[in-house]
Structures are given as C-alpha cells and as structure tokens.
Computed example of a mutant assay.
Amino acid sequence: MKITNVEALLCDGGWWPWIFIKVQTDEGIVGYGECSDNRVNPYGILGCVEDLKPLLVGSDPFAVEALYWQMFRLTRPNLGGVVQKAIAGIEIALWDIKAKALGVTVSELFGGPIRDKIRVYWSHCGTYRALYPDMVGSMPLRSLGDIAELGAEVVERGYTALKTNMVVPGEPASTIWSADGNVTTETCRSIEKLLGTFRDAVGDTVDIALDLNFNFRADGNIRIARLVEQFDLMWLELDCYDPVALLQVKNAARTPICSGESLYTMRQYKPFLDAHAVDVAMVDVAWNGLSESRRIAALADICETPVAPHNYYSHLSTLLSAHFCAAVPNLKILEVDVDSVPWRDDLLTEPLEIKDGYLTLPKKPGLGADLNEAEVRKRPWVPKADPLKLRRVRGA
C-alpha cells in the first residue's frame, strides 16, 4: 500500500475554522485526521501540509512512526506551532488508515483499550451562548438566572462536570478578556457570582472548572485561585509558559491547577512535569498527534500526574481524543463542546454516543467514523474581516 495524496480541508466551524487532513492510498483506504487551529493561522497549517506532501506521497502508510519522525526532523528548526499541528493531523490520518486496513480500532493499535467508556465534561458552558447565541441557536444569557437555568440543563442532560470561562451575563452577555494581565475587583466579583450561581444550580455532585486562558500573570492567577477555593473546583485552568511561575500559583492555593494545552511534544511538557507545576496536564491530541500525546501521558504518569485532553473542535477531534483516552492509564476526564454550530453533527458518518456524562468508545475500525466530505465541502471557511469583532469581550 502506498500514499497517493495528502489534502487539507477547511470547514466553517462558525467562529473559527475546522481543519481536517485526508490521506489517500492506492488501495482505496482513506484516513482522516484533524488539527484545527484558531481563526488566525489556518492557512499556515495548509501550507505546511503541502510542504510535507512530497515526503509522504509514495510512502507506506503503515510506517506511521517512521513517517512521523521524518516529518519532525525535516521541520525541527520550526518546532511547535502550525508545523507540529500539520504533522499531528497527518499522523492521526495514518493511524486511521492502518487501523482500517487491519480491521481494528485505533486504540487496538496501542495495546487495546483500558476503558470503553470515557467520562466527559461540558466545556465552554455558557461561553458560546454568551458570545455567539445566534450561531449556536440558544437563548441569550441576560442574567444570573439564565446561568442557573443552564446549570440545571447540565444536570438534566446527565453531565457530571462542566467548565466555563469568565462569562458575564447581560444585554448583551460578554466574557472577560484582559489586555494588561491585571486582575480587578470587578473581575473577582464577576467570577464569584458566576461560580456561585453554577454551584447552587448543579449542587455538590457536579464538578466545576474555570478556564482563565492567558489572561493574567502569576499574581492575578494566585488571587483568583484563592478566591475560588470556596467553590471546590475540579480545577482552575490557566495558560503559562513559565513552569516556575505556574508552580508559584499551584503552591499558593488549595485549588487544583490544570495547564499545558498550548505546549507541544514531551520536550515542552518535561520542565512543567519535572517541577510538579500542575495537578492536571492538559494535552492537545489534535496538535501533538496520537503517538506523541501517549508519550506525554507516560511522562506525566511517571510524575504522578493525570492528563485531560484539550478538545474544543469538531466531533472528529473528539473521536481521536477518545482513542487516546482509552489507551492511557492516567486519564482524568475528556473535554467536549456541547454547544456548537448546528451542522457539526452532519460532518461525521456516525454519531457520537454520549449518555449520562460518558462517551462510549466506537467499535468500528479506525477512528470509528469517517468525515462526510460532501458536508465539509458545503461549508468552506470564509475568513472574517476582523475576527475579534465576533467576540463580545469585556476588558478586565
């Protein structure tokens, strides 16, 4: 079997594009991967895929590790970023081909699943309804009463955990986004009201997480970590490129700290794990690839640290992340977006099975479903003139 073509497909995801990788073979078996970026860099990834294509066409798709390391070595001066995402999307598609050809699931290629049901949490709970209510087809979040109703919906739909951002209900609702990295008293009050409302609505048995992204420096993250101790969070999530600063936050409060979604390869995770700077290591499987993500998980396991996939893309990303979850021993929980554009469900040939807060691992060969390319091509990504205008942002 030989690779005959490698193609990147851009699909409209509403407020950002989804990036899919299609790898074709001379035996008619097609593999799919996903390496969706934010709205700023999709064409950079497409260009990297084209740059890597001559290396791949004519090669044996079964040699997944060999091809991964050839791509890695070729691009090593540009470690991380859009290059790593392109490599990851291709690598995932190669695993999909190999599993289909052998008639097994992707997780079988990694020794077989440790678990066939994976606990999931409702991510960006309230965030997309605040920023893009028309796109997701939801009622606006005008008040804390609407937040309480959303919390009740989480419980009613069987989810046992949720994650939100710094959502501020209103007319219109917004999210807090800091330009200077400083935490204000108003920000703290907004967070306290939001989490207090969610906690009252979901009760003590549903886990809650708050994502601060890259908004604040260490001093601000410490202030918020101490503030939210009263809500017994599953974790406080934040992004940081300095393991010493992150350890400072972790040691300053009892709130568990989750980080790592913007890191690439074991080399970038190692200093954070060596320093025990995180309670939960977040790993983006679509950006790191399946093999490297498993190596990161193994490194985290040595450091007694659980992992949780970063997964806010299409359902294909959820599938590939699920096979990672099934194959590692130190899994915490899997992220899924419940709110999305209405056509997301049409992009896969098989629906996801999520019930009572758990995703059932698909049994079909490969990732468990294929891209519905006709639907993907019906929804081409059209760049927005000013992407930030899509967001209802309140300065911190």
Rank of each mutant, 00 (worst) to 15 (best):
K98H: 07
I87Y: 08
G47H: 14
Y159S: 02
S59D: 10
W287T: 00
K85N: 06
I191Q: 06
T164H: 11
G58Y: 15
I147H: 08
T127G: 07
S178A: 15
V280Y: 07
I45Y: 03
F72S: 07
R344M: 00
W16A: 00
G28Y: 09
Q268L: 01
K193H: 13
P365F: 02
A298Y: 06
R392T: 06
L131H: 07
K364H: 11
A8E: 01
P77Y: 00
S259G: 04
M71F: 10
K163E: 04
G368K: 12
W95N: 03
T4A: 06
P306H: 05
V336T: 08
V393D: 13
S190M: 05
L273Q: 02
D370C: 10
C125S: 04
I21A: 02
C48P: 03
C35R: 10
A93P: 13
S36Q: 07
C325P: 12
F110H: 09
D337G: 05
D116T: 15
G44E: 05
A326I: 03
T255S: 09
P54D: 05
M139D: 13
E375K: 15
F216T: 04
L74I: 09
C258Y: 04
I3F: 11
V249N: 11
C240D: 11
T255A: 12
I176D: 00
V136K: 03
W15F: 14
